[in-house]
């Protein structure tokens, strides 16, 4: 069974992906091909841009079930539309008109149950693509990409995670920002959550939301402060006062930011940053090793 680490933040732009791709690389030094990264930020996945030599291995389409209404059987009673929580079904009796809006449909199946006339059948409708790559340094990563216009982020993340190959020692999940359903889906089965924050009021505010969430979900977590040197000291005091685990700090550096902007954060890593990521990785390895044979059941 794999040890699953989710990287989340609340606020966007704190450095989830930076931390994710670095942990991917540094953990692979110990676990070789046994580390697998999944980009769960399906609305705007960006892990792949840091792997210039990545090779596509496999691609599949994720689908959801969407109702079709058989005109011959439909009585235009409108019960299916009434039951639909997402307003995905239009029935206009006057005009003998029926239409299903696939992008609004959440695939809950309520309409099929509602219909007394057997007029509803379900068909598969694509919501996105799941692609698996060889990273260029031996390890594999997977990217879920939600179709533009689709509102099915959470289902897309679920389908992407279902496709993760078995038998990896460590699974990394790069989470979307926020604290709502897509994030809950991403971290739900994690053994450990790395919360990436920045020492700004906004970063701090969202870190507290994220801590509320992981506490509610009873997930162990540690904090990485990125862009250290910016903002103020509130987050440090908060971590101290609550005895939370600080996994490491990455300084705010223009040099590092410009490496990021060229997509080269995994090449020519500045020595200082290299040491910091090694330190964070070491702390995680201890957790991974300690956890061996002591897995909680799937949530």
């Amino acid at each position: 069974m794999s040890y699953k680490i989710a990287i989340a933040s609340g606020k966007g732009g704190t450095g989830k992906t930076t931390v994710s791709v670095n942990l991917f690389k540094y953990l692979s030094e110990k676990y070789k091909k046994n580390v697998f990264l999944t980009d769960c930020d399906v609305e705007e996945p960006n892990c792949l841009i840091f792997f210039n030599d990545a090779v596509l291995l496999n691609e599949s389409t994720a689908t959801k079930l969407v109702p079709s209404i058989e005109k011959e059987k439909c009585t235009y009673c409108g019960k299916c539309a009434e039951w639909c929580e997402f307003n995905a079904i239009s029935i206009i009796k006057k005009a003998r008109f029926t239409e299903v809006n696939a992008t609004l449909c959440h695939s809950c199946g309520a309409c099929s149950v509602a219909c007394n006339f057997d007029a509803i059948t379900e068909h598969s409708d694509p919501i996105g693509k799941i692609s698996r790559y060889e990273s260029g340094f031996g390890c594999e990563l997977m990217v879920g990409r939600l179709n533009i216009g689709s509102t099915m982020q959470t289902m897309m993340i679920e389908k992407t995670k279902e496709n993760i190959p078995e038998n990896h020692k460590v699974l990394l999940f790069d989470s979307p920002p926020g604290t709502s359903c897509p994030v809950v889906e991403t971290i739900s089965d994690a053994d450990y959550v790395v919360l990436v924050t920045e020492p700004t009021p906004f970063g701090f505010h969202d870190l507290k939301l994220m801590i509320d969430l992981v506490t509610e979900m009873q997930l162990p977590f540690g904090i990485v402060i990125n862009k250290a040197g910016l903002g103020n000291n509130e987050v440090y005091k908060f971590i101290d006062d609550n005895n939370f685990e600080l996994l490491g700090e990455i300084p705010f550096s223009k040099e590092y930011a410009s490496l990021y902007s060229t997509g080269n954060i995994l090449k020519n890593i500045p020595l200082e940053i290299d040491l910091l990521f090694r330190q964070i990785t070491e702390r995680l390895i201890k957790k991974i090793e300690k956890d061996e044979g002591n897995h909680h059941t799937e949530r």
Binding site: N87, S90, I92, K94, L104
Partner: peptide, 14 residues
């Protein structure tokens, strides 16, 4: 929650 536009469009037809 969503789909206000299509629901309102139905009303216009009615």
């Amino acid at each position: 929650m969503g789909g206000a536009g299509t629901k309102t469009a139905e009303l216009m037809v009615e």
